[in-house]
Nucleic acid binder design. Structure first.
Lengths: 234, 234
DNA sequence: TGCATAATTTTTGTCGACAAATAATATGCA
DNA sequence: TGCATATTATTTGTCGACAAAAATTATGCA
């Protein structure tokens, strides 16, 4: 029960309510503020945001469309679970999208894209230097998302961003273990990836992205094998 | 203005209205009964289905989430356009998903999956024999979708099904030219693909799927180059 | 007491109505 | 007549209320 996210009722612009609820709920789900299985109560949200149930429901329909919440008809709706049993399907998809988007970035990027990518890389390096695990997760995702954008294929960027979101949820479960030496290696690999993209070397981009992605996957799998404790209450 | 799709108002079950509107609009969009750019009028739909605007709007939000309609705030909503300029991104994604899903099917399928796949292949062959172009499109999509299901990766099947839907819209524009000899070749290639899946030969599956997909892409691109006339009024 | 059925409460899905935002039309003035 | 402003009309977004479905609690009977 945090205090009010609500704006004085009629101070709000006419279609902004839905987006506000959608964005905030999405963040709370991905940050595990609302852990998997949390019940979503429409009237509670309506009171919290000081609006009627209609815009709340629209936001929920959108979230359900992205698979972030599950709605059983005439029954409660709740934050969707993380499918640990089929985690390998997530890894398969993630590695492939890392490869494909990086390859396409090498092929289709424009010069101005590199500026954006380098900006995210700088933020990622700063997060590593500061040993801020949550910032690492966020800036790493932004870095790779920017690369995907440079590849200019909306179908791939769409799936990739979904995967990065899901990865954000998974990593939140284990982020304390990101304090070892590996992140510095990621920084270096990012630099190499930027270089081959700038050189438009598609094969090298594919190769480096594959290695990089598999390293990340191994990192996560190691955490699972170690049976890492969740540091967020479920 | 076709006649009523409506059921006597209170004869309808409680959450079925949304699904009905969603399914029907989706079909009409993919079949180009509602061509790109068609305006979507909420009150008109509400009258047509004899229900209030609320469930109509929910169906529209879902469709917008899948990119099938575009909604500009406080303004009209319309069927989304087909992006002919970036068609190559569609082809790239389609070919890759053909490859990946077929490869995974060879790796992870269960015996009962093959029954389903063979069933769709039989229907496809029948459509080719009958020279029914629309049925070819539908059964071909069902065949490959079943292969994707056998690969058991929800991330890939999700994207793939979206691509097949979009392809359905594109092919509708040109389906008259499907009456030449190529389809029989597709039937044969399908048989080969089934064989390598059953043999769990992932490399061969990858190779055959690539060839098959690129053939389909070339077929479509030839139609574009030929400047084929649209046989549906825009 | 134990269990099946009935009454109550809670929550979701739908409705009709109103208000804001935009489009369309009309009015006034040079 | 031509154009800017004002008026009207249309359409979307939001609201409060009601009804159906399910969950919960209460009641009756052995």
């Amino acid at each position: 029960m945090t205090d009010n996210d609500a704006i004085s009722t009629s101070e709000r612009k006419r279609g902004s309510g839905v987006k506000m609820v959608y964005d905030l709920l999405r963040d709370e789900i991905l940050d595990l503020v609302l852990p998997p299985g949390s019940p979503i109560d429409e009237v509670q949200l309506a009171e919290r945001f000081k609006m009627s149930r209609t815009p709340i429901r629209e936001a929920l329909v959108r979230l359900a469309g992205e698979g972030l919440i599950d709605t059983l008809p005439n029954r409660s709706t709740m934050v969707s679970n993380i499918d640990f049993l089929n985690m390998h399907t997530f890894f398969d998809a993630l590695v492939l999208m890392y490869r494909v988007t990086t390859r396409l970035a090498a092929q289709y990027h424009r010069i101005e894209d590199l500026q954006v990518i380098r900006g995210h890389q700088a933020e990622f390096a700063a997060a590593v230097a500061a040993q801020d695990a949550l910032a690492m997760i966020a800036t790493n995702a932004a870095f790779h998302s920017a690369i995907a954008d440079a590849g200019r294929n909306a179908y791939f960027t769409g799936l990739f961003n979904r995967l990065l979101d899901e990865g954000r949820r998974i990593l939140r479960l284990y982020y304390q273990s990101y304090e070892d030496r590996l992140p510095q290696r990621f920084v270096d690999e990012h630099e190499d990836i930027i270089a081959v993209i700038a050189a438009r070397d598609t094969e090298a981009a594919d190769r480096l992205a594959t290695i990089h992605a598999e390293q990340i996957v191994q990192q996560i799998q190691k955490l699972f094998a170690r049976g890492g404790k969740l540091n967020i209450a479920l």
